[in-house]
Nucleic acid binder design. Sequence first.
DNA 1: GTCTATATGGAGATAGAC
DNA 2: GTCTATCTCCATATAGAC
Lengths: 206, 206
Amino acid sequence: MARMVAERSDAIASLAEVFREHGYEGASLALIGKATGLGKGSLYHFFPKGKEEMVRAVLAEIDQWFEDSVYSPLREGTDANAAVTSMLDETTKYFRSGRRVCLVGALAVANTRDLFAQAIRGYFIAWVDALQSALVRQGRDVEQARLLSEDAVLAIQGAIVLSRALDDPAVFERAIGQLHKRLGVEANGIVVPATARPEGSITPFR
Amino acid sequence: MARMVAERSDAIASLAEVFREHGYEGASLALIGKATGLGKGSLYHFFPKGKEEMVRAVLAEIDQWFEDSVYSPLREGTDANAAVTSMLDETTKYFRSGRRVCLVGALAVANTRDLFAQAIRGYFIAWVDALQSALVRQGRDVEQARLLSEDAVLAIQGAIVLSRALDDPAVFERAIGQLHKRLGVEANGIVVPATARPEGSITPFR
DNA sequence: GTCTATATGGAGATAGAC
DNA sequence: GTCTATCTCCATATAGAC
């Protein structure tokens, strides 16, 4: 195994991928060593507290990425619709249409939940809050924006689960399509008037 | 450890709970023994192939429960709206408003996905198909029913993830409330006219 | 059918040479 | 910083007495 990383930060991306693919318990030090190209010696040099510290470092990096690429534009973008569209696009790329697991979501469901409770909670609260802020700037009232934000974030998590279960990325992409409508934006960024939204066009009951 | 179970089937419910709470890898034989009141000897007597066989037995039982309590009513209920409402109610009780994990969903995200791929896939396909059938009998067209069904099942999975992440069952319950609207039924079973659905009542953009 | 004892492997983590 | 060797523990699984 040739030397390829000599800095702690260089290992984070590989670590993230191993934990996503194998989960916290499933990611053994052997696996981690293979993925990062680091021996146990180096691993414990960089992360003295072992796996727990590695996951914390990964979660911090994930948080930073979402802050820069998603939350911040949602909160501060001058064009709220563009920010929402961008969130949907970035999310699709990031999760690779459901082929890639959300580590935070996975940890939330696993038995390790308590260990990382704060980070997990922070991640989702920041997401929902930021989205809500964009929806309010779209002109929605606060309560409706809250409901919609929660609903959108949860739909993305569910889309990952279902698309993996069915092994079909199209499931994820359809879910994102639904969110475009529900959040009042189209894939190209054009706003859909509320009166014309297809979701309301169900056939009447008999 | 006093004798309390003497039949394989008596252990399944306890097994299901351990796997839900600790995941496949996290559920050690020691934990399983405690939960079921069975020693390793008995465990391997009932499940010669070990944990994998235990999970398969649990998945079969889960499938049976959903078939009887959810899928079958959705497919064959004379009142489609009542069946949909019942699904939402039963689901809320079953997952304890998100306090209880969906084992199938958890397995779909975990690294053990491939091992149980068939069962995972079957569970979700049956759910989406059954719900679609009820929505078609509500009078919706097939395509729209398909989209909505997929969306509803995925929302339930996402609601579990998010409500656990925020440690707040109200998140799950609000998601179910949204589904009542989206699926055209109210909590009490009364149909909401499409023209009056609050989801369409967002304020216009500026 | 249930128990205890045991085999065997791999886990996380540490020590100390280089 | 990185390596190898090693410690200790607990995992799954098996064997055989009762």
